[in-house]
């Protein structure tokens, strides 16, 4: 499945930009599969994935969640607002 992903915060520079399209394998592909695909495609992001949340729309999802082809996926590092 091809999905659209967006990086935020310090991950943008590590990934070489905000928005990317990524192929994710799995039957069906899950958030865990997405993390593995991101680690392979973006080696500089990989060390940060442990503390990176995965969002679809305005909600966050755990590793068991199934990806939907029409959902833009957000990769959200630890927050630092204020």
């Amino acid at each position: 499945m091809e999905v659209k992903i967006s990086f935020y915060g310090n991950l943008i520079n590590l990934a070489g930009g905000r928005s990317h399209t990524l192929r994710v394998e799995g039957r069906p592909p899950t958030v865990a599969d997405l993390r593995a695909a991101v680690a392979r495609a973006f080696p500089e992001v990989a060390p940060h994935l442990e503390h990176t949340a995965v969002g679809m729309g305005t909600e966050l999802f755990g590793d068991d969640a199934v990806l939907q082809a029409d959902q833009e996926i957000s990769l959200l590092p630890p927050v630092s607002g204020g």
């Binding site: 503390h51 909600e59 966050l60 755990g62 590092p77 630890p78």
Partner: peptide, 9 residues
Amino acid sequence: SEHGTPLAP
């Protein structure tokens, strides 16, 4: 990342 707060579902 070490200085921020991780988000979680």
